[in-house]
Amino acid sequence: MKSVDLFLPDEEAARLFGGRFGLCLRPGMTVLLEGPVGAGKSHLARAAIRAMAGAEIDVPSPTFTLVQSYETEAGEVWHADLYRLSHIGEVEELGLAEAIGRDILLIEWPDRLGHYAPDEAIRVTLSYEGEGRRLLVSGPEGFLACLAGAP
């Protein structure tokens, strides 16, 4: 897998990037969003979902519901926050194990996925850098080319 290193200087840049990111996602893709609390995982997922489903859609954080799903033109999109998972069996109980490889999944705190984390997943690691965010994105070459705007 290839990777790209990006710097997003502010919230608007993160929103625009998230929109482009969402438009590059296809059914069967799983995105693993890693980073400390407040680094922008939910913000990125929200922008991606809005790009796929329509800017006016309400996209609440799944912090308490654990999973939210959305019907989009690109297919079904699952947004999961696994921070509060207490055991690996909950991955199956939530339906995530079945959705991996079929739908589009955006998963925060993917370390809780254990053996369910697909090897071919797109990984996004967010970190603080001054007022902005540093992103390391790794994934298939075709996905990264889409992010870069290549045809």
Rank of each mutant, 00 (worst) to 15 (best):
M52C: 07
F21K: 08
D119V: 05
L105K: 04
A145Q: 12
S42R: 10
L8F: 13
T30C: 00
R46V: 09
A39R: 02
Y70S: 03
V124K: 05
I88K: 12
T125E: 13
R112V: 03
V91F: 06
C146N: 08
E141L: 15
L66T: 11
E131L: 15
P110S: 07
G40E: 10
R15E: 15
V77K: 05
A48T: 06
Y116M: 09
K41A: 07
V91L: 09
L32C: 06
G38D: 10
E98N: 12
I57D: 03
L135H: 09
P140S: 14
G114Q: 07
L23G: 09
I107L: 08
G95A: 06
D81G: 06
E76L: 15
L136H: 11
V91K: 10
D58A: 13
G95V: 06
G149N: 09
P140Y: 06
S69H: 02
P27H: 05
E131V: 14
L105F: 03
G75A: 02
L82T: 09
F17G: 14
E98H: 07
D5A: 15
P110L: 10
A47N: 07
R15P: 13
D81T: 02
E129P: 14
R26E: 02
G132W: 14
P151Y: 09
D111W: 13
W109V: 07
R84A: 12
H115V: 15
G95L: 06
E131A: 13
S138P: 03
L32P: 01
L135C: 11
F64C: 00
L44G: 08
I100A: 08
G101M: 04
H43L: 08
A148V: 14
V77Y: 08
L126Q: 07
A74T: 04
R84C: 10
D119R: 10
V91G: 10
E56N: 01
T30R: 04
L66P: 10
W78K: 07
P62G: 02
R134W: 14
E131Q: 13
V31E: 01
M29E: 03
I88L: 11
A51V: 06
L105I: 00
C24I: 07
L23E: 13
L44S: 06
L147K: 05
P60A: 01
G89E: 12
Y128A: 04
S86P: 08
E12I: 08
L147A: 06
P36R: 06
P140V: 11
R134T: 15
G139Q: 02
G28I: 01
D103G: 07
E120Q: 07
T65N: 05
M1F: 01
D58M: 03
S3R: 05
L6V: 13
A51R: 03
D5R: 15
F64R: 03
A80H: 00
R26H: 05
L6T: 09
D103H: 09
E11Y: 13
H115M: 14
L33P: 02
S127N: 11
L94Y: 00
E71G: 08
L105W: 00
H87E: 14
S127G: 11
R50G: 09
A14Q: 10
G28F: 04
L144W: 03
V124Q: 07
E12S: 14
G19C: 06
I57K: 02
D5N: 12
P151V: 15
I100R: 02
F64W: 01
I100C: 04
V137A: 11
E92K: 14
